[in-house]
Design a protein around this nucleic acid. Structure first.
Lengths: 204, 204
DNA sequence: CGATTTGTTGACTCTAATCAAGCGTAGTGG
DNA sequence: CCACTACGCTTGATTAGAGTCAACAAATCG
């Protein structure tokens, strides 16, 4: 239960509201705070020197992000839509962890969770466009509500930069899955999963 | 200093020798041990249902691997060449961490190091073949000896499966970098870096 | 020394990127 | 309320880069 990190009275913070596209922190800045999404969605990303952007992860309500073991943030973070986010001082968490083994274990656990996510992401990036999009839809379905109706907080460009594809390829792949009856495009950000077994098969 | 995990007298183990291609553990097995490479090299990998293999990471002398927060190993591990590897019981490390905050922090630090590696790996996988190979050579140079002569422990297939390319593309890209004078192929596993600035530029 | 594995090179194919146009929806101002 | 604009998304035509299939060369091993 990594959420407990933010659950103790000692660490209860007041949510702060961020506008759509507002920067939460930038790569290289001092990593003084740890964050938890209450409402909305967050992307962490890097921009390569030639302008390509890679999105590392999406954070949804309940998710913790921005926990660094080093001094600085290694990625930048932005709100994808209007979001409420709770903050705690990293130094405070670290000092509690020093005397409380349970909190120390939770810090480790948050990092281990990120590691799992990063490794799954790498596995994604060696697959075909269809497989990547299928995996993305299944991941989002599971994380949002585990229902067949997926209401995406992010646009096509964010999806493309997360999957290592272009916006055109993401769009085409979705239309193709829709013509299969595998999914249904109710609106660009509202997608119904009509045939999970096909998606799962694509997912490997 | 994550090495200290294995440095305490309590955790001093006797190195075990593994043959080339010997399995160290398999995905899904009980994660009872944590490992440290003394001599040789190790790959961790997964095989997808269609037979494609992804190599997650290479471990070289001094590196710790196989530390899981969950019950099972999530990847398989094999020796790339004949290797000596020290082992400690995970339960032992965990029980020490419970009373020793410094050891707890080291566990966290090992996982955080893996996280950095996994994220860099993801960044790699969105790049072109030239960029991936250049990044690979620079990474290996730095990790092996930080010299211009890189003696790779792994073959082309391992490199390909790590970079998400085919063996042919890796081979062609190396020949191309050699015809540039960027590198020199002394033997298939012995590569001299002749122009690091070109490689770094490719690396982004 | 022959046999087998590993690596290189060539010809061709195919997937996703690029370049370019058009559509649809939401928001703005007359 | 309706044009006008802006943005996000889709679709089409073409290109580029890596994959595939195949042959061969080189290194390694028994």
């Amino acid at each position: 239960m990594p959420q407990m990190l933010f659950g103790s009275p000692e660490l209860a913070g007041i949510p702060v509201a961020y506008d759509r596209n507002a920067e939460i922190y930038g790569e290289g800045e001092l990593a003084d705070y740890v964050y938890k999404v209450v409402r909305g969605a967050v992307r962490t990303y890097k921009v390569l020197n030639d302008g390509r952007r890679q999105i590392n992860a999406f954070y949804l309500p309940g998710d913790i992000f921005g926990l660094e073991i080093g001094e600085d943030y290694t990625w930048s973070a932005e709100a994808i839509v209007g979001s409420d986010i709770v903050t705690v001082k990293r130094s405070l968490v670290l000092s509690i962890a020093e005397r409380d083994g349970e909190v120390a274990r939770q810090l480790w656990s948050v990092t281990a969770g990120e590691l799992d996510g990063a490794r799954s992401h790498s596995l994604l990036l060696i697959k075909s466009a269809q497989e990547r999009v299928a995996a993305f839809l299944l991941e989002m379905s599971q994380r949002l509500a585990d229902a067949n109706l997926v209401e995406l907080p992010m646009g096509r460009q964010d999806i493309a930069d997360y999957l290592g594809l272009t916006i055109e390829t993401v769009s085409r792949t979705l239309t193709q899955l829709a013509s299969n009856e595998t999914i249904e495009l109710l609106a660009s950000r509202s997608i119904a999963l009509r045939n999970r077994s096909v998606l799962s098969r694509l997912n490997g």
